[in-house]
Amino acid sequence: MVDPIQGESEGGQDEPTTRTNWLWRRADWEALRAELSQTNWEDRLTGTLNEQVEAFTSHLLSLQSNRHPRWKTDLTAKLSGQNVGKKEWWSSLKQQQGLATDSTIPPLTTPSGEVVTRGRDKAELFSAHFSTKMSVTHPNNTPPRIPVLTTAELDSLHITMEEVMALLSKTDTKKALGPDNISPHILRQCAAELATPLTQLYRECLTSQTWPALWKQARVVPVHKKGSRADPKNYRPISLSPWWGRRWKSSSREKSPPSSTPTTSLTQSSLGSGRVSRQPTCFS
Protein backbone atom coordinates (compact mmCIF):
# COMPACT_ATOMS: atom_id res chain seq x y z
CA MET A 1 0.00 0.00 0.00
CA VAL A 2 1.01 3.60 -0.32
CA ASP A 3 3.02 4.74 2.69
CA PRO A 4 1.28 7.48 4.68
CA ILE A 5 2.92 10.86 5.16
CA GLN A 6 3.22 11.25 8.89
CA GLY A 7 2.29 14.43 10.72
CA GLU A 8 1.03 15.61 14.07
CA SER A 9 -2.68 15.82 14.69
CA GLU A 10 -3.61 19.17 16.18
CA GLY A 11 -6.94 20.50 17.34
CA GLY A 12 -9.80 18.77 15.57
CA GLN A 13 -7.76 17.40 12.68
CA ASP A 14 -7.77 13.71 11.86
CA GLU A 15 -4.69 11.60 12.28
CA PRO A 16 -2.74 10.70 9.09
CA THR A 17 -4.27 7.83 7.17
CA THR A 18 -3.06 5.39 4.54
CA ARG A 19 -4.70 5.46 1.13
CA THR A 20 -4.21 3.48 -2.05
CA ASN A 21 -5.46 5.02 -5.28
CA TRP A 22 -5.22 2.87 -8.40
CA LEU A 23 -4.62 3.98 -11.99
CA TRP A 24 -6.90 1.56 -13.80
CA ARG A 25 -6.27 3.02 -17.23
CA ARG A 26 -2.65 1.84 -16.99
CA ALA A 27 -3.37 -1.64 -15.65
CA ASP A 28 -1.74 -4.69 -17.24
CA TRP A 29 -4.96 -6.52 -17.99
CA GLU A 30 -3.40 -9.15 -20.24
CA ALA A 31 -0.97 -10.22 -17.52
CA LEU A 32 -3.75 -10.31 -14.94
CA ARG A 33 -5.98 -12.44 -17.16
CA ALA A 34 -3.09 -14.80 -17.80
CA GLU A 35 -2.43 -15.25 -14.08
CA LEU A 36 -6.10 -15.89 -13.36
CA SER A 37 -6.28 -18.41 -16.21
CA GLN A 38 -3.32 -20.29 -14.75
CA THR A 39 -4.79 -20.36 -11.24
CA ASN A 40 -5.67 -23.85 -10.06
CA TRP A 41 -8.98 -23.03 -8.41
CA GLU A 42 -9.66 -26.65 -7.52
CA ASP A 43 -6.63 -26.67 -5.23
CA ARG A 44 -7.09 -23.13 -3.97
CA LEU A 45 -10.81 -23.29 -3.10
CA THR A 46 -10.83 -25.97 -0.43
CA GLY A 47 -12.19 -26.27 3.10
CA THR A 48 -15.32 -24.61 4.42
CA LEU A 49 -17.25 -22.02 2.44
CA ASN A 50 -15.77 -19.22 4.54
CA GLU A 51 -12.25 -20.52 3.92
CA GLN A 52 -12.89 -20.74 0.18
CA VAL A 53 -14.20 -17.18 0.01
CA GLU A 54 -11.25 -15.89 2.04
CA ALA A 55 -8.80 -17.67 -0.29
CA PHE A 56 -10.61 -16.31 -3.36
CA THR A 57 -10.61 -12.75 -2.02
CA SER A 58 -6.98 -12.89 -0.88
CA HIS A 59 -5.84 -14.09 -4.31
CA LEU A 60 -7.72 -11.33 -6.14
CA LEU A 61 -6.37 -8.63 -3.83
CA SER A 62 -2.84 -9.93 -4.33
CA LEU A 63 -3.16 -9.80 -8.12
CA GLN A 64 -4.83 -6.39 -7.93
CA SER A 65 -1.89 -5.08 -5.92
CA ASN A 66 0.76 -6.55 -8.22
CA ARG A 67 -0.70 -5.66 -11.61
CA HIS A 68 -1.95 -2.09 -11.19
CA PRO A 69 0.11 1.11 -10.99
CA ARG A 70 -0.50 3.09 -7.85
CA TRP A 71 -1.15 6.76 -7.34
CA LYS A 72 2.14 7.36 -5.52
CA THR A 73 4.23 6.83 -8.66
CA ASP A 74 1.95 9.11 -10.64
CA LEU A 75 1.96 11.67 -7.82
CA THR A 76 5.77 11.82 -7.82
CA ALA A 77 5.77 12.71 -11.51
CA LYS A 78 2.93 15.15 -11.01
CA LEU A 79 4.68 17.16 -8.29
CA SER A 80 8.26 16.97 -9.59
CA GLY A 81 7.87 19.66 -12.23
CA GLN A 82 8.94 23.26 -11.80
CA ASN A 83 5.50 24.67 -12.58
CA VAL A 84 3.66 23.07 -9.65
CA GLY A 85 1.64 25.70 -7.82
CA LYS A 86 1.36 25.98 -4.04
CA LYS A 87 -2.35 25.20 -4.06
CA GLU A 88 -1.91 21.97 -6.01
CA TRP A 89 1.06 20.89 -3.88
CA TRP A 90 -0.66 21.45 -0.53
CA SER A 91 -3.94 19.95 -1.77
CA SER A 92 -2.16 16.75 -2.82
CA LEU A 93 -0.25 16.60 0.47
CA LYS A 94 -3.37 16.98 2.60
CA GLN A 95 -5.24 14.39 0.54
CA GLN A 96 -2.45 11.85 1.04
CA GLN A 97 -2.40 12.58 4.77
CA GLY A 98 -6.13 12.17 5.04
CA LEU A 99 -6.50 15.82 6.04
CA ALA A 100 -8.37 17.03 2.96
CA THR A 101 -11.33 19.25 3.76
CA ASP A 102 -13.69 17.66 1.25
CA SER A 103 -15.70 15.76 3.85
CA THR A 104 -19.44 15.86 3.26
CA ILE A 105 -20.10 15.42 6.99
CA PRO A 106 -19.93 18.72 8.92
CA PRO A 107 -19.11 18.92 12.65
CA LEU A 108 -21.66 16.91 14.64
CA THR A 109 -23.27 17.55 18.00
CA THR A 110 -23.39 14.74 20.57
CA PRO A 111 -26.42 14.17 22.84
CA SER A 112 -24.49 15.94 25.61
CA GLY A 113 -23.99 19.04 23.45
CA GLU A 114 -20.31 18.45 22.62
CA VAL A 115 -19.19 19.24 19.06
CA VAL A 116 -17.01 16.64 17.30
CA THR A 117 -14.96 17.38 14.21
CA ARG A 118 -12.61 14.41 13.81
CA GLY A 119 -13.59 11.69 11.36
CA ARG A 120 -13.16 8.87 13.89
CA ASP A 121 -15.34 10.65 16.45
CA LYS A 122 -18.05 11.23 13.85
CA ALA A 123 -17.95 7.56 12.84
CA GLU A 124 -18.32 6.42 16.46
CA LEU A 125 -21.22 8.84 16.95
CA PHE A 126 -23.01 7.52 13.87
CA SER A 127 -22.27 3.94 14.91
CA ALA A 128 -23.89 4.45 18.29
CA HIS A 129 -26.96 6.08 16.73
CA PHE A 130 -27.45 3.58 13.90
CA SER A 131 -27.01 0.58 16.19
CA THR A 132 -30.01 1.69 18.24
CA LYS A 133 -32.13 1.52 15.09
CA MET A 134 -31.06 -2.06 14.42
CA SER A 135 -31.76 -3.43 17.88
CA VAL A 136 -34.86 -5.36 18.88
CA THR A 137 -36.66 -4.26 22.04
CA HIS A 138 -37.77 -7.79 22.97
CA PRO A 139 -35.49 -10.25 21.10
CA ASN A 140 -37.00 -13.32 22.80
CA ASN A 141 -40.54 -12.65 21.62
CA THR A 142 -42.00 -14.84 18.90
CA PRO A 143 -41.88 -12.97 15.57
CA PRO A 144 -45.26 -12.16 13.99
CA ARG A 145 -46.62 -14.43 11.31
CA ILE A 146 -46.36 -13.10 7.79
CA PRO A 147 -49.37 -14.00 5.65
CA VAL A 148 -48.80 -16.24 2.62
CA LEU A 149 -49.72 -14.20 -0.43
CA THR A 150 -48.77 -16.68 -3.15
CA THR A 151 -48.67 -20.43 -3.67
CA ALA A 152 -45.83 -20.22 -6.20
CA GLU A 153 -42.75 -22.22 -5.21
CA LEU A 154 -39.13 -22.30 -6.27
CA ASP A 155 -38.09 -25.94 -6.07
CA SER A 156 -34.50 -25.42 -7.19
CA LEU A 157 -32.08 -22.71 -8.15
CA HIS A 158 -29.33 -23.59 -10.60
CA ILE A 159 -26.43 -21.24 -11.23
CA THR A 160 -24.62 -21.60 -14.55
CA MET A 161 -21.18 -20.34 -15.47
CA GLU A 162 -22.63 -18.49 -18.46
CA GLU A 163 -24.98 -16.55 -16.20
CA VAL A 164 -22.18 -15.62 -13.81
CA MET A 165 -19.96 -14.50 -16.69
CA ALA A 166 -22.76 -12.31 -18.02
CA LEU A 167 -23.19 -10.69 -14.60
CA LEU A 168 -19.46 -10.04 -14.30
CA SER A 169 -19.20 -8.56 -17.80
CA LYS A 170 -21.98 -6.07 -16.99
CA THR A 171 -20.33 -4.78 -13.81
CA ASP A 172 -20.63 -1.03 -13.42
CA THR A 173 -17.05 0.21 -12.93
CA LYS A 174 -18.29 3.49 -11.47
CA LYS A 175 -19.66 1.78 -8.38
CA ALA A 176 -17.83 2.31 -5.11
CA LEU A 177 -15.58 -0.36 -3.63
CA GLY A 178 -17.15 -2.72 -1.15
CA PRO A 179 -15.53 -3.67 2.18
CA ASP A 180 -13.44 -6.37 0.48
CA ASN A 181 -11.67 -3.65 -1.60
CA ILE A 182 -11.94 -5.64 -4.83
CA SER A 183 -12.33 -3.24 -7.72
CA PRO A 184 -15.27 -3.56 -10.13
CA HIS A 185 -12.74 -2.95 -12.93
CA ILE A 186 -11.21 -6.38 -12.29
CA LEU A 187 -14.60 -8.08 -12.29
CA ARG A 188 -15.54 -6.64 -15.66
CA GLN A 189 -12.15 -6.96 -17.35
CA CYS A 190 -11.61 -10.54 -16.13
CA ALA A 191 -15.18 -11.84 -16.37
CA ALA A 192 -14.27 -14.99 -18.31
CA GLU A 193 -11.47 -15.91 -15.91
CA LEU A 194 -13.51 -15.30 -12.74
CA ALA A 195 -16.70 -17.02 -13.86
CA THR A 196 -15.50 -20.53 -12.96
CA PRO A 197 -14.44 -19.93 -9.32
CA LEU A 198 -17.38 -17.63 -8.61
CA THR A 199 -19.86 -20.18 -9.97
CA GLN A 200 -18.31 -22.77 -7.66
CA LEU A 201 -18.71 -20.45 -4.66
CA TYR A 202 -22.33 -19.61 -5.51
CA ARG A 203 -23.18 -23.31 -5.85
CA GLU A 204 -21.51 -24.03 -2.53
CA CYS A 205 -23.72 -21.35 -0.96
CA LEU A 206 -26.78 -23.21 -2.20
CA THR A 207 -25.51 -26.61 -1.11
CA SER A 208 -24.53 -25.52 2.39
CA GLN A 209 -27.40 -23.01 2.75
CA THR A 210 -24.96 -20.54 4.27
CA TRP A 211 -23.69 -17.13 3.24
CA PRO A 212 -19.95 -16.37 3.64
CA ALA A 213 -19.08 -14.17 6.61
CA LEU A 214 -16.83 -12.03 4.41
CA TRP A 215 -19.72 -11.26 2.07
CA LYS A 216 -21.94 -10.18 4.97
CA GLN A 217 -19.68 -7.24 5.79
CA ALA A 218 -20.58 -3.76 4.57
CA ARG A 219 -19.37 -0.19 4.66
CA VAL A 220 -22.00 2.04 6.20
CA VAL A 221 -22.27 5.55 4.77
CA PRO A 222 -24.43 8.19 6.51
CA VAL A 223 -26.77 10.07 4.18
CA HIS A 224 -28.47 13.27 5.29
CA LYS A 225 -32.28 13.21 5.21
CA LYS A 226 -33.55 16.58 6.42
CA GLY A 227 -33.08 19.10 9.19
CA SER A 228 -29.82 20.17 10.76
CA ARG A 229 -26.72 18.46 9.37
CA ALA A 230 -25.11 18.72 12.79
CA ASP A 231 -27.62 16.27 14.32
CA PRO A 232 -26.74 12.57 13.76
CA LYS A 233 -30.44 11.71 14.07
CA ASN A 234 -31.05 13.44 10.73
CA TYR A 235 -28.98 10.84 8.83
CA ARG A 236 -29.87 7.38 7.57
CA PRO A 237 -27.38 4.56 6.92
CA ILE A 238 -26.60 3.23 3.45
CA SER A 239 -24.69 -0.05 3.27
CA LEU A 240 -22.04 -0.63 0.61
CA SER A 241 -21.89 -4.42 0.48
CA PRO A 242 -19.57 -6.63 -1.61
CA TRP A 243 -20.45 -6.99 -5.29
CA TRP A 244 -21.00 -10.75 -4.95
CA GLY A 245 -24.05 -10.37 -2.73
CA ARG A 246 -25.63 -7.54 -4.71
CA ARG A 247 -25.45 -9.51 -7.95
CA TRP A 248 -26.68 -12.70 -6.29
CA LYS A 249 -29.78 -10.88 -5.10
CA SER A 250 -30.43 -9.50 -8.57
CA SER A 251 -29.94 -12.86 -10.26
CA SER A 252 -32.03 -14.86 -7.79
CA ARG A 253 -34.87 -12.34 -7.95
CA GLU A 254 -35.04 -12.79 -11.72
CA LYS A 255 -35.47 -16.53 -11.21
CA SER A 256 -38.18 -16.17 -8.58
CA PRO A 257 -41.64 -17.29 -9.65
CA PRO A 258 -44.05 -14.46 -10.42
CA SER A 259 -46.23 -13.46 -7.52
CA SER A 260 -49.67 -11.97 -7.94
CA THR A 261 -49.08 -9.89 -4.81
CA PRO A 262 -45.56 -8.78 -3.84
CA THR A 263 -44.45 -9.67 -0.33
CA THR A 264 -42.65 -7.16 1.84
CA SER A 265 -39.92 -8.50 4.09
CA LEU A 266 -40.24 -8.00 7.84
CA THR A 267 -36.87 -6.27 8.08
CA GLN A 268 -37.68 -3.73 5.41
CA SER A 269 -41.15 -3.14 6.76
CA SER A 270 -39.79 -2.46 10.24
CA LEU A 271 -37.43 0.13 8.77
CA GLY A 272 -40.27 1.80 6.92
CA SER A 273 -38.79 1.42 3.45
CA GLY A 274 -41.78 -0.36 1.96
CA ARG A 275 -39.57 -1.99 -0.67
CA VAL A 276 -40.47 -5.34 -2.18
CA SER A 277 -38.36 -8.39 -1.34
CA ARG A 278 -38.75 -11.84 -2.81
CA GLN A 279 -35.88 -13.95 -1.49
CA PRO A 280 -36.03 -17.51 -2.89
CA THR A 281 -33.38 -18.98 -0.63
CA CYS A 282 -32.58 -18.61 3.07
CA PHE A 283 -29.00 -18.45 4.32
CA SER A 284 -27.51 -18.38 7.78
Rank of each mutant, 00 (worst) to 15 (best):
S169R: 10
S135F: 07
W89G: 10
D172A: 11
S208Y: 04
L168R: 01
T104K: 12
L206A: 09
F283N: 10
T39C: 07
A176P: 03
S252R: 12
V148F: 14
L177V: 03
T263P: 02
Q6C: 01
T151Q: 15
R236A: 06
G227W: 06
Q200G: 01
C190F: 07
P258Q: 12
L266D: 14
D121N: 04
L187E: 10
T46D: 02
L63H: 02
P184F: 11
N66I: 06
R145I: 14
S269Y: 07
E35D: 14
I105N: 08
E88C: 13
R120L: 00
R203F: 09
R203Y: 10
L45F: 00
T110V: 03
L149D: 11
L63T: 01
Q96M: 14
S250M: 12
M1T: 09
D3R: 11
G274T: 00
P258W: 10
S169V: 04
S250D: 10
S241R: 04
L271W: 05
D74L: 06
P237Y: 04
E204W: 03
K226T: 14
L168N: 01
T18H: 08
D43A: 02
T73N: 03
L45V: 01
Q97W: 03
D155C: 11
Q13D: 11
L32I: 09
K87M: 06
P144E: 14
S228V: 01
N181D: 11
E30M: 10
K216F: 07
I146P: 01
S277L: 11
T210W: 09
T20E: 05
V115Y: 05
G7E: 01
G81I: 02
Q6F: 00
I238W: 06
Q97E: 07
A191L: 03
S252E: 14
I238P: 05
D121S: 04
T104F: 12
L214Q: 12
L60K: 02
K233R: 13
C282L: 15
S65H: 06
V164Y: 09
G119I: 00
K87R: 10
S112Q: 02
Q209D: 06
P184W: 09
N40D: 13
I182P: 07
E153C: 15
L60Y: 00
S273M: 08
R67M: 08
A55W: 00
P144H: 10
T73C: 02
S239G: 05
S277Y: 12
